[in-house]
Design a protein around this nucleic acid. Structure first.
Lengths: 213, 213
DNA sequence: CTCCGTATTAATCAATTGATTTAAACATTT
DNA sequence: AAATGTTTAAATCAATTGATTAATACGGAG
């Protein structure tokens, strides 16, 4: 009995609370906070409307819980990689590209959802998770700083994430403009597993004189 | 009298219709379709609520008009560059990076807005504008195809747009994680005007053997 | 000035939505 | 089984929202 002890456990395999949370994840992700209704969540969970406010005080509360989990889900993917002190920078870059392409193939809508909701409501997930400190002090950022010449290492971090994540964010446009279809997109993303690390390496080794600002 | 003839013109410098449209642009951009209300638009425009439905049949109608204009606004920025038959590929790449960094500095919220709204409602802006044909037959894509080796040229298009646009999309996160602040972000973006073209050049000249899929 | 189509306003509707209430069903303890 | 606390359900509230209506103000044509 390693599980959390609950005073009153129903026969149901999954608790109502878990049902609601799972439904909320699905509904909020597909519709966004504003368009999603508590009735949508209740229906998706197959439970009574009142239970949403019974278990979670409000829609906003439920949403913030979902957001918290989604962000940790997204960042948790690369956390082991960037905090590994033994691996080289090149290994990390390859690991990040691979891990994110895997992750985004399974969760293609997540980045757009997070970026957009973060833009509207200013949700302070930083203070709650302490990601900022973990990231800045991570071996990854330190290695990037150490190896960089006269270029701000953040440039490479941005470009790495951009080349990895952006295609998934822009997929609707890429598809509708006819530049790619379902299968060619997948093929391209698999090619990028090795292309992106190689590109970043070429970029880093490139000589560059900074311009005047 | 080159302007469109209107039967009944009020003294107002800007017509009510234009006021509503301008207000709709502002409100929809900042709140998104679902969270924006027709009352928001009316208040922002300083007019009576009923006029929104008087001039534009419905909220959806007004929104689609706004979206249409926003997308054309975004694509219009690079259209002259990609369709210029006289300039070289390198010149085009530099032109696109520069034009978009200028544009996004002035309109930082636009890409996230468009990408998100496009993900939810499937708005068919392609059939209305014919962007797909223009893009695919453009000198830019043709030049990219011609110069590419064994790598799909779409890779470079994606990476170019990614490295240019993604920083603006991810700005809220970059700021909140403390990786950049307001001034350093601007400095980075200005540096990318020359960095990105140079990077793309390095990427294109890089030798690469495609992996098995 | 009078007439007539256009523009604007205030009031209102019906539907939706987040949230609450009240009561019933259920499980646990004694 | 009675008592007690927890979970679920149905009904309802008050507020919001997209849209309409009916009446009024306005401006040009005759």
């Amino acid at each position: 009995m390693a599980k959390t002890i609950q005073k009153h456990v129903k026969r149901d395999a999954v608790s109502t609370q878990e049902k609601i949370k799972a439904a909320a994840h699905k509904v909020f992700l597909s519709k966004g906070y504003a368009a999603a209704t508590t009735r949508d969540v209740a229906e998706e969970a197959g439970i009574n409307l009142a239970l949403v406010n019974y278990y979670f005080r409000s829609k906003k509360n439920l949403f913030e819980m979902v957001m918290q989990e989604k962000i940790q889900f997204l960042l948790g993917t690369i956390f082991p990689i960037i905090s590994d002190a033994s691996s080289s920078l090149d290994q990390k870059i390859e690991g990040i590209a691979n891990a994110y392409i895997d992750f985004l193939t399974k969760n293609p809508d997540l980045p757009t959802f997070i970026l957009n909701e973060l833009r509207k409501n200013d949700f302070d997930f930083i203070s709650k998770t302490g990601i900022d400190q973990v990231l800045k002090k991570s071996p990854f950022i330190q290695q990037l700083k150490g190896e960089s010449r006269n270029i701000n290492p953040v440039h490479f971090l941005i470009s790495l994430l951009a080349m990895t994540i952006f295609p998934f964010v822009a997929r609707p446009i890429l598809m509708k403009t006819g530049l790619v279809d379902e299968s060619s997109f997948q093929k391209l993303m698999n090619e990028r597993r090795t292309l992106i690390p190689a590109w970043i390496k070429a970029m880093r080794s490139m000589t560059y004189k900074p311009i005047a600002v």
